[in-house]
Nucleic acid binder design. Structure first.
Length: 445
DNA sequence: TTGACTCAACATCCTTTGCTACAA
DNA sequence: TTGTAGGTTTCCATGTTGAGTCA
């Protein structure tokens, strides 16, 4: 007979199982909470009788049944339910929340929903209340009520892991691509919850840590791309790319800065052919003056490329051609550009510096149609409830697929009559071109 | 309760077209 | 001649957020 128990994020066993390590001092086997599922499966498969006191679940409340799922949502839930572990990948606006709620309802076990922002904390809480008819617990943003269904932020998950780690049978990770980062993944490892569901539009990460997802949550069990939903469930859309050229003075400065950087790289025999080599440059920048200057030159050159004044001219043209009823969101890469555009065109800007109340007011007026155009840096990319728009103008951005798809998602909510359009402005013969092709790589649009 | 502030954590950061020494 | 490896780190800057602290 094996004895398996839980203490402060760890599994403790007197009998061997894979994933558990022998601890000489305590004369016991120890593992992470997350391995509970595999350890139990091993004991069951090996027909080892086990006294299991790991989970101490909170009672699950009486909930309303969730119906009105779209066919692909039902399909996603079924695929996940077969193993009760795994990641569902769906584009922004395709209704991931409903899939999470349906999973909770089907499992009928105490559940914890993990979200990256306070905005999402309350959005989820509202959905649970409306669709399931129960008030969920909320942990985060200064609140701390734990219930049979609880919504929590990733940051609070970390501090509460030892206390709550064996209270929930199911964990739902919203925007699960955040989970593999160093701190958050530690928190997830301390939880013993055997059932796990991850929701995201883009699981892949620039740092490659998405490789941890199968062990933290499970494999991708369902994936649907935007083009499959186009027209029926999300707006019909088109992506336009408009190329511009640097102004003469910008071109001169750009060449000067790139030259300065190249010279240094040549001297150091660096080629910047990979992220690793780029990190090497960052390292050198912390050690020697020339390195720092080279990196600063690279940064300034990039800023010139992505923020060329030609793009402002083009934006003027685009805004001049919009029709009645169009709603436009202009996306930039940095706050300078957002504020420059705001001043130039007299349109409201939303950045991380915008106070919460002011941000809410701008978004409300945009929703009501009082504002037709707003400009934003990257605050509205994720985790914020942004009113629908039908035109997105990408002045500049990162070279990541994720940001591109998130921004596209901002114009995809189905609206009658209006087709959506995403216009990307790209500066020719500069690193902006490279960023643009990188972010569109493997994007089915 | 709120507001202002600080701090820590997370994310991005690259693609060339070009080197150079050495082993097979 | 042709092909391939070559040296490998806690962080230049900026953007963004949640939590904690203190008045």
């Amino acid at each position: 007979m094996a004895n398996l128990r839980y203490s402060k994020g760890l599994l403790i066993s007197d009998t061997y199982a894979p994933n558990l390590k022998w601890n000489e001092r305590g004369k016991i086997y120890i593992g992470y909470g997350k391995d509970y599922f595999d350890v139990m499966r091993y004991f069951n498969d090996s027909e080892i009788e086990v006294k299991d006191t790991v989970l101490d679940l909170l009672p699950f409340p009486q909930v309303k049944e969730i119906d009105n799922l779209r066919d692909y949502q039902r399909d996603a839930v079924e695929k996940w339910y077969a193993s009760k572990r795994g990641v569902v990948v769906l584009p922004t606006g395709a209704g991931k929340t409903l899939i999470g709620l349906k999973a909770i309802e089907k499992c009928r076990v105490a559940s914890i929903v993990v979200v990256p922002t306070v905005d999402l904390l309350y959005q989820w809480a509202k959905s649970v209340e409306e669709k399931m008819g129960v008030k969920p617990g909320i942990v985060g943003n200064g609140e701390n009520q734990v219930r049979g269904i609880t919504v929590i932020t990733y940051d609070s998950l970390y501090t509460k892991a030892e206390e709550l780690g064996n209270k929930f049978g199911l964990m739902v990770f919203d925007e699960v691509h955040h989970l593999p980062s160093e701190g958050y993944s530690q928190a997830a490892m301390l939880f013993a919850s055997p059932y796990r569901l991850g929701l995201t539009a883009t699981p892949e990460r620039e740092d490659g840590r998405h490789r941890l997802l199968p062990s933290l949550v499970g494999p991708v069990v369902f994936r649907l791309t935007v083009d499959k939903l186009k027209g029926k469930y999300v707006s019909d859309f088109e992506v336009k790319r408009i190329y511009v050229e640097l102004k003469e003075d910008e071109e001169e400065r750009y060449a000067e800065l790139r030259g300065k950087m190249s010279l240094y790289l040549k001297r150091k025999k660096l080629r910047l052919s990979s992220l690793k080599e780029f990190k090497r440059l960052v390292f050198l920048a912390s050690r020697e003056k020339e390195g720092r200057e080279a990196l600063l030159a690279w940064q300034e050159a990039l800023r010139i490329a992505v923020n060329s004044r030609s793009k402002i001219d083009k934006l003027r043209e685009i805004l001049g051609q919009t029709e009645d009823g169009d709603k436009v969101i202009v996306f930039t890469r940095d706050t300078f550009m957002a504020y420059d555009i705001s001043k130039e065109f007299l349109i409201p800007a939303v950045t991380y510096k915008t106070p919460k109340e002011e941000r809410e007011e701008i978004l409300r007026k945009f929703k009501d149609g009082e504002y037709k155009v707003i400009v934003t840096s990257s605050v509205l990319d994720e985790g914020v409830d942004v009113p629908d728009a039908n035109v997105a103008v990408l002045m500049a951005g990162y070279g990541t697929r994720r940001q591109f798809l998130q921004r596209l998602g901002r114009v995809l909510r189905k609206k009658e009559g209006k087709n959506a359009v995403l216009i990307e402005l790209v500066t020719k013969n500069t690193s902006d071109h490279g960023l643009s092709s990188r972010r569109r790589k493997n994007v089915p649009v």
